[in-house]
Structures are given as C-alpha cells and as structure tokens.
C-alpha cells in the first residue's frame, strides 16, 4: 500500500512532467525498443507467413553459420580496418587545425576559415560519393584528365579495390576534420588569456606557447575522444560504404552494415541470418563501449554517462 501511495502522490505532483515526456518515450519505444523485442528473430528461422512469433526456434544456428562462413573474416577485418585506419589518419587533423586556428591573426580571415572548414560536414553522403564518381571518372573526370596531361594512364579509381580505403578515409577527413575541430577550439578558447600574456612576458615564442600551454590543456579531451573512438571500431558507416561500393571494390568495401543490408533487404530473404550478424556486432559494440566508458571513469576525467 505504501508504495502505491507514494506512486500516487508522485503522479499527482509530477503528472505534467510525465505528459511532456510521453511523446519522446513513445517514439523511442516504437523505433528502438520494439526492434529489441524483434531480435528474437535471430534465434528463429523467419518465415513470412508465420511472422516473428510463429517462426520455429533454431537456437544459435545462424551465429555458427556466420562464424563458419567465408564472409566472417572478410567482413570483420574490412569493418575493423576501415575504422582503425580512419582513426589513425583522421584523428590528428582536427587537433592540429584547432591549434593552428587558435594562433591565426586577423579576425575576419579566421572567421572565413572557420566557416569554410565546417562547410563540408553538411553535405550528404550521396553528394560526397557523387563528387568522387564524377571527379574520378576515367572518361569524363578531371583527375584522370590531369593524369593524362602528365602522361599517365587513366585509372578507374572507383573500380579498384586497392583505392577504396584511401578514397573512403580521405573523403571522410576532407568532410569531417574541420567540424571535429570545434571541440578542441572550444577548449582552447576556454584557456585563461593571462597564461599567454605571462608566457609572452617571459619571452615565449608562439611555438613554445603551443607546446607548453595549448597541448597540456587539450590532453584530457584528446584522451577521452581517443578512447571513445576505440569503442566504435566495429561500427559501420553503412550509407557511405554502400554508396561507394562497386563490383570492383567489393572485396574491401563490404563491411558488416552493407552486407546485412544487401543480404537481408536488397536481395531479400535472409532475415534471420542477417539479424544474427547484426546482433553479433551490436553485442561486441555494446561490450566495448561499456568497457571503454569504465576505463574513462577510472582515469577520472569524464565519462559518457
């Protein structure tokens, strides 16, 4: 009775807040929690006529099938390497950009620069992929015209599997590096100006100020973002990889998200098998992010939740 009474009193007092929360709770329920209920399809053999609940149980069959299949190693290494190399090449750019921007003289030029480097972030993956296809086209693209002008042979970049990762990561850096520098820029503007003035008085050069003031202040954010990124090494940037996928580069561009879409929905049919693959990676991602967050908390800096 006591509990019911307490609930009753809480509802009476806070019901308006619950009403304000209701639409968000309902939408998250429909698009996030109902699918979690649907995960059981990974342990069943989906048949359209019988629906999710009526299809027969098969236990871990789909998981073992996946682990034993030719695609297991290929998908896992493709996904991991694309993320890992992307982190390796892409991570330093925003930091360097923020530091150099912070040292820039001239307010107007600084503003113009900021506006420009954030801009690509707002373009859609279709536009990015479209630009790659257009510029790199062997018959009409500018890049191959330039190669020809210098006496080279035109290359069909989008069909070459060896070019896929460079193009993917390169365009990712082009699009996101500027935008990702915002956090570092904000951290740098929060530094007490007195430090710089004191350093100037002591005769420090700009370079010395970067080494002794800027970088120590950025270290906590750098560490946190680095660890967080490590928690996302098996996630898929499905849109872009799918958009850039061609018959030629498929041995490299086939990452988990794209494969699940292709086999589960595009060709149709393999619902249970692809749901199992999805669950497999989601669980790995979940465990990594929890571990990573735990490490963050232990380090005493910041945690995500």
């Amino acid at each position: 009775m006591c509990l019911l009474e307490r609930i009753g009193r809480a509802v009476k007092r806070d019901w308006q807040l619950y009403v304000l929360l209701l639409p968000a709770i309902a939408l998250v329920f429909i698009f996030c929690y109902l699918p979690m209920y649907g995960i059981q399809i990974a342990f069943r053999d989906f048949r359209a006529v019988q629906g999710i609940i009526g299809s027969p149980w098969v236990g871990l069959k789909h998981f073992t099938d996946f682990i034993n299949s030719f695609y297991f190693g290929r998908l896992l290494s493709n996904t991991f390497l694309l993320n890992f190399l992307g982190l390796l090449w892409g991570f330093p750019f925003p930091i360097i950009m923020a530091i150099l921007l912070n040292q820039m003289r001239g307010k107007r030029f600084k503003r113009f620069t900021q506006t420009s480097i954030y801009l690509p972030n707002f373009l859609s993956p279709v536009v990015i992929a479209g630009m790659l296809f257009l510029f790199l086209s062997p018959s009409t693209g500018l890049v191959n015209r330039a190669i020809e002008a210098f006496g080279g042979q035109p290359t069909h970049f989008m069909l070459e599997e060896s070019w896929f990762r460079s193009l993917f990561i390169g365009s990712e850096i082009w699009q996101r590096a500027g935008w990702n520098s915002i956090l570092y820029i904000a951290a740098l503007t929060a530094i007490d100006q007195g430090l710089y003035e004191a350093a100037t008085m002591d005769g420090a050069t700009k370079f010395q100020k970067i080494i002794h003031i800027d970088i120590p202040h950025l270290i906590p954010i750098i560490v946190m973002l680095l660890i967080l990124n490590c928690g996302a090494l098996l996630t898929s940037n499905t849109d872009k990889a799918y958009l850039m996928q061609t018959a030629g580069n498929i041995p490299r561009s086939d990452i988990i998200g794209v494969y699940v879409y292709r086999m589960g929905l595009l060709r149709g049919g393999m619902f249970s098998y692809t749901a199992a693959i999805g669950l497999f990676t989601n669980v790995i991602n979940f465990v990594t992010i929890i571990t990573v967050n735990w490490i963050c908390r232990r380090l005493g800096e910041t945690s995500l939740f």
Partner: peptide, 28 residues
C-alpha cells in the same frame, strides 16, 4: 520528479544498444 533516473536510463540505453536494421525493419 519521481523516476527521473529510470527515464534517463531508458533514453541513454538506446545510444549503446539497438535492435539492428533487420529487426527494426520487420517491426515497422
């Protein structure tokens, strides 16, 4: 308000775990 922690967790959890493309598709 009462239950604030639970509601926050309800939202945050979806950032870290999802049903995945196929279950979401079948449900919709």
């Amino acid at each position: 308000f009462a239950g604030k922690k639970a509601v926050t967790l309800y939202f945050l959890f979806t950032m870290f775990f999802t049903g995945g493309l196929i279950p979401q598709f079948l449900m919709n």
